[in-house]
Every structure is written in structure tokens, then in C-alpha cells.
């Protein structure tokens, strides 16, 4: 059975069908792309999967569990993490604290224990130690004590991915990770995504407008237009698909 299975997913905002009857199946270990023109409903699908929106119709199953109607923090507990189109870091917290939040799920101290303990606790030390090691994987350890908002753009993107991975997900959703990056940064990002997939044995679903990145990186691509899946397949096929070309370039181009 597929790790993430979406069946007949539909989301209506009033009279507008943002996502309409979408089916998707993502196997464990796959690296799948989700593309489509602006307003095609890509981010809406992410929001439906992560519980930000509730589906109007349809089923979302992850790892054998039904996700419909769960709150975002409950979805995270099932092993899904994401990044955002417009970076959403905890801006006024140090870089290392951003990553430490990821260990939130594993922290054992109860609220009462936290209030009466002595200021330095072993669990906190362990979390700090782990978070530092984690940052060094992403070459951000030298920034550990700086505020997240003071990082340059590329490092903020990297930190957001690091933060998502700190929650130890099985499935990572990346929403336009290369937005605003120059070609060299995009190339670095491509290597990073490949590397984290192998390192953390992840399944990745990513939304991206940078076609060179998507074509190089993804093994399979879903194309969305006006909330409907218009094509699905490996990059080479997608590139030649007349429907896709039409959606991107208009009818005359076909």
C-alpha cells in the first residue's frame, strides 16, 4: 500500500473548487513533484494533507491512518512535516531554538515537572546537544545563537528544512523550496534534497516552479491545472505531454 494515498480529494471555497477530485498515491521512498500554473491548487493540497484545511470530500490516508479532520499538530504526530511557500520560521528565536521545537514531540517532562525542576535539567541538555549536531549536518551550527530572522535567505530556507526534519517525519512536503534562489543556490538545494532523502530515508513531495529542478530531481510528477490532475508520470513523459504544454503555454503553442 502507498505511504500517502489521496482519493477523490475535493476542496470548495464557496463556489470555487480549488481542488477537484484529485487522486494521488505516493510510495515509500519516492521523490514526487507537484507542478502546475499559479492558482492550480498545489498549496491547497498541502494544506489539506497537513490539516490546515478540512477536505470537502475525499479521503487522505497516510501509513494506514485516515487523516481527514485531524488538526495540524496531530498530522505531524503521524509523521508528516512541511515547509512553507513564504518562509515561516520562528523569527525572533535563535536558530538552535527553531530546531529544538522539532524535538517537542519527544520531550517527556510533564508540565508540572517542568515548573518545579531545577533550572538545568538533563533532558534539556540532551536536546541542546542533539540540536547542535543536527544543525551541523546542515552547516548551520556556526549560526546557532543568532536570531533566525538575521539569516540570509538561502540559509533561512535551509533552516526551515532542518526544522521540519527535526520532527523526524516519514514524509516531507516542500512548498516551493527554490523560490527566490539563484541558479547556484538552486543547484545546492537540489543536492541537499537528494542527500536528506537518502540520509533520513524520506519520502518527499515537492511543489516547485523551477522546471529544471523538478525535471532533474523528481522521479514522478503530478501536473495540476484548475484543481484537476491533467497529467501524471515520469519527467520525460510530462515534458512531451500536450495537455501540460497547453496549460503552461496556451493552446497555440501545441
Amino acid at each position: 500500500m502507498a505511504l500517502l494515498e489521496i482519493k477523490g480529494l475535493t476542496k470548495a471555497f464557496g463556489g470555487l473548487l480549488a481542488v477537484s477530485n484529485v487522486d494521488m498515491a505516493i510510495e515509500t521512498g519516492e521523490l514526487v513533484g507537484l507542478i502546475g500554473p499559479n492558482g492550480a491548487g498545489k498549496t491547497t493540497i498541502f494544506n489539506l494533507v497537513t490539516g490546515v484545511f478540512e477536505p470537502t470530500r475525499g479521503e487522505i490516508t497516510f501509513d494506514g491512518c485516515r487523516l481527514n479532520g485531524l488538526k495540524p499538530y496531530q498530522v505531524t504526530k503521524h509523521g508528516i512535516a512541511r515547509t512553507f511557500q513564504n518562509i515561516r520560521l520562528f523569527q525572533n528565536l535563535p536558530v538552535i531554538e527553531n530546531v529544538k521545537i522539532g524535538y517537542h514531540l519527544n520531550a517527556k517532562s510533564s508540565l508540572w515537572a517542568s515548573m518545579v525542576r531545577f533550572p538545568i535539567l538533563r533532558e534539556e541538555r540532551e536536546i541542546t546537544q542533539k540540536a547542535r549536531e543536527f544543525l551541523s549536518i546542515f552547516e548551520l551550527d556556526y549560526r546557532a545563537d543568532e536570531l533566525a530572522k538575521n539569516l540570509p535567505y538561502g540559509e533561512q530556507r535551509r533552516l526551515e528544512i532542518a526544522r521540519a526534519l527535526a520532527a523526524r517525519p516519514k514524509l516531507l512536503l516542500l512548498d516551493e523550496p527554490a523560490a527566490g534562489m539563484n541558479p547556484q543556490e538552486t543547484q545546492e538545494l537540489l543536492n541537499l534534497i537528494r542527500w536528506v532523502r537518502d540520509q533520513f530515508s524520506l519520502t518527499i513531495l515537492l511543489i516547485e516552479h523551477d522546471m529544471s529542478l523538478v525535471m532533474q530531481l523528481c522521479e514522478r510528477i503530478y501536473v495540476l491545472d484548475y484543481g484537476v490532475t491533467i497529467a501524471e508520470g515520469p519527467p520525460a513523459e510530462i515534458k512531451r505531454n500536450p495537455k501540460v504544454i497547453e496549460a503552461y503555454l496556451g493552446e497555440e503553442a501545441v
Binding site: 488538526k71 495540524p72 499538530y73 505531524t76 520562528f90
Partner: peptide, 13 residues
């Protein structure tokens, strides 16, 4: 800092 991001990190806001 960010309620939406906190929720996606598993925090019950």
C-alpha cells in the same frame, strides 16, 4: 512567533 508553523511542528497551540 508563528501559530501555523508551531502547529505543523506538532505544537497544540
Amino acid at each position: 512567533e508563528d501559530e501555523v508553523a508551531a502547529e505543523t511542528m506538532g505544537v497544540n497551540a
